[in-house]
Amino acid sequence: MSPAVAPPRPDEEAIRDALRGVADPEIPAVSIVDLGMVERIEVGPDRIEVELLPTFVGCPAQELIRSTVIDALAPFGRPTVVGYSFRVPWTSDRITATGRANLTAAGFAPPAEPGDVRCPRCGSGVVVRDSYFGPTQCRSLWYCRDCRQPFEAFKPI
């Protein structure tokens, strides 16, 4: 009988692809990869390390995202260690073009300076900010004067 053989070492891109299936539970339309939260992936002989950057220091979704990442990488057949770090500050500039498009499609204006915010429903720039703070730490409240609908925008940070 041959000794147990460890599954082949996965490459970083395969892991990144798997992480495209993990979303922030508060913004299910955008993966943590497109949010720019994945800073580093390291595949060692006996484990996978993933370094994530929190979008906000006190984001309550951190533990849930950690366990979802571990589940998503389970098929690679080796333990996953997920660490959060502030080594590099997460900024809204890290959101990818795909992430911005997905935000808009889900009804959230992507991060922009106040003068550049567009209504995610009708595209109008005739919008006003109601409040810097929205239902989650990363969103603010806006109103579109053209289609007369409230909407949320991702905060530039």
Partner: peptide, 20 residues
């Protein structure tokens, strides 16, 4: 209502900073 949301969000930020 907007201040209800704002104060809650600010408080959540501060508690997050405290935890870190």
């Amino acid at each position: 209502l907007e201040e209800d949301v704002a104060m809650s969000s600010i408080a959540q930020d501060e508690l997050g900073h405290a935890r870190a």
